[in-house]
Amino acid sequence: MNINKILWPTDGSKESGESLRLALYLARIYGSEIICLHVSQIQIPVTDLYPSYETVIMDIVKDTEARFGEEFNRIETENPGVRFSTEVVRGSVVDWIIEKAKADEAGLIVMGKKGHGLIGSALLGSNTLKVLRNSPVPVLSVKTEDEKTEYDIKKILVPLDISDTADSSLTYALGLAGKLGASVTVVYVFWIDANVYELSPDLVDELSGHSAKELRLRVDAVKDRYYRDNKGAPEAGIETRVLTGVSPALTVTDYADENGFDLIAITTHGRRGLERIILGSETEKIIREARCPVLALKP
């Protein structure tokens, strides 16, 4: 797991500020460099009625870019133990984030789930989702409801689909937990749809029990392989649990809230079916609705 460099895109919103605090927390633990990036996505109205629009907007953009340059200098001065590099550019927000992550070989992107409309440069929800879908590296997203004085990640929740072979979220969580001294809880959601309501409670319990055994076997296999491949890595405490609910996303986020989890690690795809959890759309719902930060990884 490489987190030597953390890319932090910002539009100046509260969520960007909160994501910086999380980036700083991880940078201090991993000794990472933080790459500060602001993208001005210029939107000039096409009209002959107000030709001065272009001049006015460009003046605002230049002032904004100068302000971000000053802000980056302030952040660097206030955090002397952390290495920084900074860049203020113009163009497509999503394209710049993706290309910057590739070019600078960032190991992680930390960003707000949404931002504000600052000359079209905001990290809006749609932009965040586009980054999540296209990023070559894991993306850690934060929203302002998570606001804390200090981050201290000690409980990591990993929703897992036992019918899928993707183990990236659990493997990554084990490495992260070992470094942070955190525990890992892996959950499988037994999705109760309209057809299941006709089943008896005893049958639902039986199916849930079968899922619990399958989940434990799956987790043990991943854990054994991880520690075999990473000899000497700090071992994290890990437990499993089967949840039931009519909405996979709400079941996961409610469980995270009720049990005080500090982070959710999730794979950005899924499958449909009676015993399948974490659909692509459900994954996005978890990322959008979770109060705690969400780490999204590709399979």
Rank of each mutant, 00 (worst) to 15 (best):
M1Q: 11
G12C: 01
K14T: 15
K14Q: 14
E15S: 14
A23W: 02
L37C: 00
V46I: 13
L49T: 11
T55C: 12
I57Y: 03
I57G: 00
M58Q: 13
F72D: 00
R74H: 12
V82N: 06
V82A: 04
T86A: 10
E99C: 11
D104Q: 13
E105F: 11
K114Q: 14
G117H: 12
L124R: 04
T144M: 15
T144I: 15
E147G: 06
E147Q: 11
E150S: 14
K155C: 07
L157F: 05
V158S: 07
P159A: 04
D164E: 14
G178S: 09
D193P: 01
V196R: 04
L199G: 00
S211I: 09
R216V: 07
R216I: 10
L217P: 05
A221V: 14
K223H: 14
G232K: 10
E235D: 07
G237Y: 12
V242A: 00
L243F: 08
L250K: 10
Y255A: 01
A256Q: 02
D257A: 11
N259F: 08
A265V: 13
I277M: 14
I277F: 12
I277K: 04
E282T: 05
K285E: 08
I286Q: 00
R288E: 13
C292S: 08
L295M: 11
A296M: 13
